[in-house]
Design a protein around this nucleic acid. Structure first.
Length: 554
RNA sequence: GCGCCCAUGGCUCAGCUGGAUAGAGCGUCGGACUACGAAUCCGAAGGUCGAAGGUUCGAAUCCUUCUGGGCGUACCA
């Protein structure tokens, strides 16, 4: 509806210019919004005020001319008012609301989809946690947000690929192998040297060592170096396996797992370094190689090859992004923990050196999660390895609860995640509010079926019977669903969707409490069954984007 | 020190890229089931949007300074 009104305005302005009652000018983006005040109409536009400066005329006079020239050929408008400093307020004829539902009925599962992506290829890289330990709760938030952004983009006409970058090279891998090695030695009698401080302290390392001992006996006791090489690989594989399983319980899967190690074995890193050196992006100083990231606004230049000859993580990351673009992605979205924000300028410098525009890389920062239980912080210590894992949280509160609670909040704001609230089956828990609306509709449908009704299509009903304010509100909000999804896709803000369905559920519940769906008036019953059917479709489609289930009973 | 993020009713958070009298949920208080699911609904109280300036017809939103909190500031990832 917003788009229809914007078009009416645009046509009117065009004809005003033609008639020379307005000066010729570039028409700016015409914004149509939902006023919160009912007396300001169903929709409103500030276009006259926006035009005021270029027209050099009073906004209200401009508004008058625009309104005079609006050609409402479909007769959707009841009246138009000019109010305040120059707002144009639209009042929609009440009979048009139900007609907006026809699209929902024909599109069904596809209602809410769009083609703003026009098939362009986008890659979403997320989680990408090192395979050195189980996922913590912050990873889970990033996983859910990344997955949902991918869902939203997919529904908006982008061709999306989900990818997990495995940091399976470098120092921390050796450390992992060593950690397992020392735990393994401990199993074979008291160790005089003790367990090194800088090794991974978590209990899962000991468990891995036990597993290896049970499988292979004491064969790794003697030859330290080759043993560690084996143990490293074994441990990384096993941990990554666990991570994949944990992500699956959250409903998160990937199209591809990309190994950092391969960037070395196939010389990608060496090649790109050489290329960038030749092109002058890299220089040598003090025995190390530096990348000129300052030219693109970074605070200082960054090392890509250390004095000891080893490339840094950054070097591998440039090679990785080169690989991404070479696979034909028009745009690359990285979902990062907010503690990596300092990395953005250097990564942008990296892709620009690859001949890419800044905008071809978009970074979504996910703030850290504060885990609580009943309002009390859950103690976490990465040093000792004592932390609550994603698996434990998912097992406790369930997939739907975890996902919804993460998705409700803007990703760029700190989040308190309270275990007790998230699993509470009460009004304190917002997931249930929405799911309950869906279950309630299903329940009404069952009752209607018992009474011999079949679920009506748009052609089966008399739309005019949907005449109460609650019914109009529902139709109006249902109509807004596709543009909401579009907005969410453009801004990469998944949290808009939970807010939207919460509103929708709220209006539905109000409607339900005030009006009876199944009554002795058969025509009215059919019309209302149709209305709640479309409501259920939207709830279902929205929850599907979020990866949250829409139960028929609960 | 420098950089990024955050600051909105008692609590947790929205605020649609600058719009009209700042909104939800929880909590508090008061109401609604002999009608399709009360995990629901209806009503009330509660705010100088961290502070001070500035930009303009108009600021929670943009600019500057300050305060308070988080993160970063590696030849670690």
């Amino acid at each position: 509806m917003k788009k229809r009104l914007a078009r009416l305005l645009e046509e009117s302005i065009d004809s005003c210019i033609e008639k020379e009652v307005l000066k010729k000018t570039d028409i700016p983006f015409i914004e149509v919004e939902l006023p919160r005040e009912g007396s300001h109409g169903d929709y409103a536009s500030n276009i006259a005020m926006v035009l005021a400066s270029s027209q050099k005329e009073a906004p209200r006079r401009i508004a008058e001319r625009i309104v005079e020239n609006i050609n409402d050929s479909d007769r959707i408008l009841d009246k138009i008012e000019i109010a305040g400093p120059g707002f144009i307020n639209f009042f929609i004829r009440s009979s048009v609301w139900p007609t907006l539902l026809e699209d929902v009925d024909t599109l069904e599962d596809r209602y809410g989809e769009s083609n703003i992506g026009k098939g362009s290829k986008v890659q979403v890289e997320f989680v990408s946690a090192n395979p050195t330990g189980p996922l913590h709760i912050g990873h889970a938030r990033g996983a859910v947000i990344g997955d949902t952004i991918a869902n939203i983009l997919q529904a908006s006409g982008f061709s999306v690929s989900r990818e997990y970058y495995i940091n399976d090279a470098g120092n921390q891998m050796n450390m992992l192998g060593e950690s397992v090695y020392y735990r393994y030695l401990e199993l074979m009698g008291p160790d005089k040297s003790g367990f090194p401080d800088n090794c991974y302290q978590g209990e899962y390392i000991t468990e891995l060592a036990r597993e290896i001992y049970a499988k292979f006996g004491d064969r790794f006791r003697s030859d330290k170096e080759s043993s560690i090489a084996f143990l490293t690989e074994y441990a990384a594989d096993s941990i990554l396996d666990g991570i994949k399983k944990d992500l699956e319980t959250l409903g998160v899967t990937f199209d591809r797992y990309f190994s950092e190690k391969e960037l070395y074995t196939n010389d990608s890193v060496a090649n790109i370094l050489q290329k960038l050196k030749k092109e002058g992006f890299i220089y040598e100083e003090g025995g190390t190689l530096w990348f000129k990231t300052m030219d693109s606004g970074d605070e200082k230049d960054r090392v890509v090859v250390r004095e000891n000859g080893e490339p840094t993580y950054f070097a591998a990351d440039i090679a990785y992004h080169r690989d991404k673009y070479s696979r034909g992605f028009d745009k690359v979205i990285n979902v990062w923990g907010a503690d990596h924000h300092g990395y953005i300028p250097r990564m942008q410098a990296g892709i620009q050196a690859l001949g890419r525009k800044k905008e071809d890389l978009e970074v979504v920062l996910v703030q850290l999660v504060n885990l609580l239980r009943g309002g009390v912080p859950v103690p976490m210590s990465t040093r000792t390895g004592e932390f609550v894992t994603t698996r434990e949280v998912t097992d406790e509160v369930g997939k739907d609860g975890v996902r919804y609670n993460f998705l409700m909040r803007r990703s760029n704001s700190h989040l308190d995640f309270d275990l007790e609230l998230a699993k509470a089956q009460s009004s304190e828990n917002p997931v249930y509010y929405v799911q309950y609306a869906h279950a309630r509709i299903s329940s009404i449908m069952r009752l209607a079926a018992e009474q011999g009704y079949r679920i009506p299509d748009y052609d089966d009903i008399k739309p005019d019977l949907l005449a109460t304010p609650e019914e109009h509100e529902l139709a109006k909000l249902i109509d807004a669903f596709p543009e909401m999804v579009e907005g969410s896709a453009k801004t990469l803000e998944p949290h808009r969707i939970p807010y939207y369905i919460n509103d929708l559920a709220s209006i539905f519940h109000s409607f339900y409490n005030k009006h009876k769906v199944v009554s002795d008036n058969a025509e009215l019953t059919k019309a209302r069954l149709f209305l709640i059917k479309t409501t259920a479709i939207v709830i279902r489609n929205a929850l599907r984007l979020l990866g949250v289930s829409a139960p028929e009973r609960m």
